[in-house]
Simulated scan of single mutants.
Amino acid sequence: MNRYVLVVRRWWAVPLAVTALVLSCGAAGTSEVPVPSLVSGMIGARVAYFTPLLVVGAVMYCLDRRAREPERTAVVPIRRYDAGAVVLTVVLAHAAGLLVGMDVARNVTLLLALALLVRRLANEATAVASGLLFLLLNLILGRTLQPEGHASHTWWAVALHPAGSVTAWLGTAVLFALALRLSESRRAR
């Protein structure tokens, strides 16, 4: 079974993606890319804001690689190995969050939960694309202007909340638990 996890599923790609996340966040620093906004024309978004997609893409790549017949006849439930690998990915992301910022670790968890939910309805490529769409919608529609004229985020734009936001962490944890629970059940195709 260990060979199946390493050779077929290729879960070794996830630690490489987390390493790429840390290196790209370190290389990008505080550099920003322009993003259109409904509030104030063009705004800047840190490049590190988009790096969680590296990890989500790697997880979806690993989940997409499967051998259907051996999985159907396997004594060991493959879905449990997959769920364990996804939880381990979140743990690795939080360990990397100590270096790059806990908001990046939270966004990895959030986008991974969203991808697991979308994967249940569609496929892995759509799941990764939904994460990018969610990030862009947060940037474009999730910012508001305060009465003082300062830009802020709306309540639903969880990816824009600061790292210390308890409500953002709680919402992310609930969504991740729900997505993990649903991903363990049989997929309807």
Rank of each mutant, 00 (worst) to 15 (best):
G97Y: 04
L98M: 14
I140H: 11
A96T: 04
S152E: 10
E124A: 13
W155M: 12
L111F: 09
G149S: 00
H150W: 01
G171T: 05
H94C: 15
L121N: 01
W169R: 12
V166P: 11
L137G: 10
A115R: 06
L145S: 11
P162N: 04
L114E: 04
F176Y: 03
V87D: 03
N138L: 08
D103S: 10
L99R: 07
N107V: 04
V87I: 12
A93K: 02
W169S: 12
A105C: 10
R79A: 14
L139W: 01
T154E: 09
L92W: 06
L112I: 03
G101N: 00
D103K: 00
G101P: 04
H94V: 15
A163L: 00
R79G: 13
L132F: 15
V86D: 07
T126F: 12
L141D: 11
G164W: 08
Y81E: 13
T89K: 04
E124W: 10
H150S: 09
A173F: 14
L136V: 13
S130W: 10
W155A: 14
L98S: 11
W155V: 15
A96F: 02
L132H: 12
T126A: 15
W155T: 14
N138A: 14
A159W: 08
L110N: 07
A151Y: 02
T109Y: 00
A115E: 06
A163D: 07
L132Q: 13
V158T: 08
H150Y: 02
R143N: 07
V87T: 06
A93Q: 08
L137Y: 13
S130H: 00
T126S: 13
A115T: 01
N123G: 15
L111A: 00
S152Q: 06
G164F: 02
R79E: 14
L88P: 05
L92T: 02
L88A: 15
L111I: 08
A93M: 09
V87M: 07
A157S: 05
V91Y: 09
H161E: 02
I140W: 13
E124G: 12
T167S: 15
L175E: 05
E148M: 05
I140C: 11
N138C: 14
L135Q: 13
H150A: 08
R120D: 05
D82G: 08
G142P: 08
G164S: 10
L141G: 07
V158P: 04
L170P: 11
